[in-house]
């Protein structure tokens, strides 16, 4: 009985650990996409809208 509980909880923690890594990875991916669009995207419209912010964060600009 007890060993059953232990093996169950081990299994559960494995799948949830994967999910934790996935959630962290997803959050970082969303952040990277946002940073790219605002700070680095080459399209003129993105550059013009965020121009002063790009300079003030010392992102490469122009």
């Amino acid at each position: 009985m007890q060993s059953q509980t232990i093996s169950n909880s081990t299994e559960q923690s494995k799948s949830l650990t994967l999910s934790a890594a996935l959630q962290v990875f997803s959050a970082i991916a969303v952040g990277a996409a946002l940073l790219f669009v605002v700070g680095f995207a080459p399209m003129d419209v993105a550059h013009n809208a965020a121009h002063d912010a790009r300079h003030s964060f010392a992102f490469p600009c122009h």
Partner: peptide, 24 residues
């Protein structure tokens, strides 16, 4: 307005990196 908006967007991006790595 666009500059402040862009500052906020960059801050959200950095906060996403920071908070998710802190949780990890």
């Amino acid at each position: 307005g666009y500059t402040i908006g862009a500052d906020i967007a960059v801050a959200i991006a950095f906060a996403l990196f920071m908070i998710s790595l802190m949780a990890l």
